[in-house]
Design a protein around this nucleic acid. Structure first.
Lengths: 171, 171
DNA sequence: ATATTTGCAAAGCGTTTGCACGGTT
DNA sequence: AACCGTGCAAACGCTTTGCAAATAT
């Protein structure tokens, strides 16, 4: 079966190799924001004939073609998610590392206004919220229209930079 | 002469060595958001007896003591600035890499509201604007109350990740 | 048939660290 | 005097890359 992302690749004229197909499929099925190592793990499960170097090359390629978006939630590794139509942002649960997506058009307007006030046209912006689940609030609250799609992902909630005491160094 | 940051160090009981004094002074005098290499360069100009490892250790120490804040404007290297009283954000000129600081209390409220809507207490957030100077707008516009302090800094305006064609790789 | 892609292992970058030495309190 | 900070160079973690073999069009 042809995955959604594979279809995008073909549309954009990318040469489809076996490993690209696998990565495309893994990405199409991802509900979260995996890093390269995680993609490699999932891809390997489907097809042993993939090296991590190829995964790196593939995500870069896909990103350059607008198929994928690279995110940096702190932690030193890039995270990826398929490009979605509208802009959205991320709230990271610092206790679990879970990532919740949300939109906020009002915020966008505000940032355009801020940039304009400073004499700039806003080209892009980066926004991430780090929060702690309110105890007393069951998992995601279920307001009228659900607060927007959500997704989860691994990663210790780290605000600054990594500092993993289980390993030697870090960056 | 004792620099502002040196004073903070003493207040917090840090042992003041020659190299820490120099780094403290460089930071006190910085109007921008230098990375470690730049700090090292400036510190070396004042005192040869400093190694870059010490600069790394010192900024980490200062950061752990709340004297310094680490920033990540993309580009793969951490940038530093002395801790300031209120929170503020950064707009990066993608043409020049210049960094302009701004505040926006309204934005903060909004983000608290967003987090609350999702069932979270906002612990911290990361916000950076990337923009292009409006041609037709002289440098920073001079509205009633000046649009807030500004500062500049090196760095190619790169949104994604580094990709410096003058060097081999990058991350 | 030919230009691209892959795997492997090595290199690169920013950052941290082990160790012996030197300076601070 | 005891401890802590420093310099050097080596190690680290993530990512990119050179090269020869494999593959897509």
């Amino acid at each position: 079966m042809e995955s959604r992302i594979e279809r995008l690749c073909v549309e954009r004229g990318l040469k489809m190799t076996g490993q690209r197909r696998v990565v495309a499929r893994v990405l199409s099925e991802a509900e979260d924001h995996p890093d390269v190592e995680e993609l490699y793990r999932r891809a390997s499960a489907l097809d042993q004939h993939i090296s991590i170097a190829t995964v790196y090359r593939t995500v870069r390629l896909f990103e350059e073609h607008g198929i994928l978006e690279r995110r940096d939630f702190g932690g030193g590794r890039a995270r990826y998610e398929p490009t979605e139509p509208g802009p959205h942002y991320h709230l990271i649960d610092i206790a679990t590392g879970k990532v919740i997506e949300f939109q906020d058009p009002a915020h966008e307007q505000l940032m355009h206004a801020v940039a304009a006030r400073l004499g700039f046209d806003l080209v892009s912006l980066r926004l991430e919220l780090f929060g702690r689940r309110r105890d007393g609030s069951a998992p995601p609250p279920d307001r009228d229209p659900p607060p927007e799609p959500l997704s989860d992902s691994p990663e210790a909630g780290r605000d600054l930079r990594l500092r993993d005491p289980t390993k030697g160094a870090s960056r």
